[in-house]
């Protein structure tokens, strides 16, 4: 058994669970439930392959302990025009610029703006992408892939396709998709959610499960944006109580009208204390 020497062999229970030949250590994914992990393996997996993808916005990176974590679902919530889309566009360009992987951007409100991305990339310091300006722009922008999605069924279709493509490509060892952005998920869910019929809610939960599965199995970082709706008194994130449990990290963004300083607040975080607040400027 190839893995025997490496202490990590304890990760597989002997007996009813057949140990696949040695290579499962390299493939780091727990495929098909053939192999249960213990805490040490998990820790190793987390420290080795669950990277923090920087958003390029210092305030947010500081709040999230480095950025958007792979394997996790991060939610941005905020009122209209608070800067959610800007954070999405910034993260996409930053992750692509650092060549951490490809970015898949699902756009529901025609707000994916290539010219904005070009401007953000142009503003990056030379040290970030050591290439001449025209080359790096093309390089960065070709690794951001965008698809418009206009209803929930489209979204299911796209996510299933993505899952299939990821499954087939994991073995090729190419530069893979590492960040999936959905801006905004609540625009798709709002028309079906609520009312007398439970169907909308169950579709919402299927989307949630699918996203988390993708995040976990293919080591994606998933970033979704959510609306704010008027609650009793203060505005609160949309989609209700059952969606609240879905994201690993929930971040609220607000911006005073006319200013370009955003305020981010951690509403929920799996590792770090919530309630912390940071201010950050939106890049011009």
């Amino acid at each position: 058994m190839a893995a025997a020497g490496s202490g990590g062999s304890a990760g597989c229970f002997p007996g009813p669970y057949p140990t696949p030949s040695g290579e499962e250590k390299n493939q780091d994914e727990r495929q098909g439930g053939q192999c249960l992990l213990n805490g040490m393996d998990l820790l190793k997996d987390v420290t080795e392959s669950k990277r923090f993808l920087p958003t390029g916005l210092q305030g947010i990176d500081a709040l999230l302990g480095g950025g958007l974590r792979q394997g996790q679902l991060t939610e941005l919530t905020g009122q209209s025009s608070s800067g959610k889309t800007q954070v999405c566009l910034c993260s996409a360009s930053h992750v692509a610029a650092r060549q951490l992987g490809h970015v898949m951007y699902l756009d529901t409100s025609n707000s994916f703006s290539p010219s904005r991305i070009a401007r953000i990339v142009d503003g990056f310091p030379f040290s970030l992408v050591k290439l001449p300006k025209n080359v790096r722009l093309e390089r960065v922008m070709t690794s951001i892939v965008c698809k418009s999605v206009f209803d929930i069924f489209d979204l299911f279709e796209v996510l299933h396709q993505l899952e299939l493509s990821l499954k087939n490509k994991v073995k090729c060892g190419n530069s893979n998709i590492c960040l999936l952005i959905i801006d905004s998920i609540s625009a798709l869910l709002a028309p079906i959610n609520g009312g007398k019929y439970p169907r909308g809610r169950s579709m919402m939960m299927s989307v949630a499960m699918l996203l988390k599965k993708l995040a976990d199995e293919h080591n994606l970082s998933v970033l979704v944006t959510n609306h704010m709706v008027a609650g009793n008194g203060a505005p609160k994130p949309a989609l209700g109580e059952s969606w609240k449990t879905v994201p690993h990290v929930r971040l609220a963004i607000s911006r005073a009208r006319g200013s370009n300083i955003c305020t981010a607040t951690v509403l929920k975080h799996t590792l770090l204390a919530s309630g912390r607040v940071m201010k950050f400027p939106v890049p011009s």
Binding site: P114, S165, N174, I177
Partner: peptide, 22 residues
């Protein structure tokens, strides 16, 4: 090898092509 954009998801476009279109 293939992370050519169309192979991942049908109908998807990369930002570079979209920029020239825009």
């Amino acid at each position: 090898d293939g992370l050519s954009t169309s192979s991942v998801i049908k109908g998807a476009q990369n930002a570079w092509d979209m920029l020239s279109d825009e």
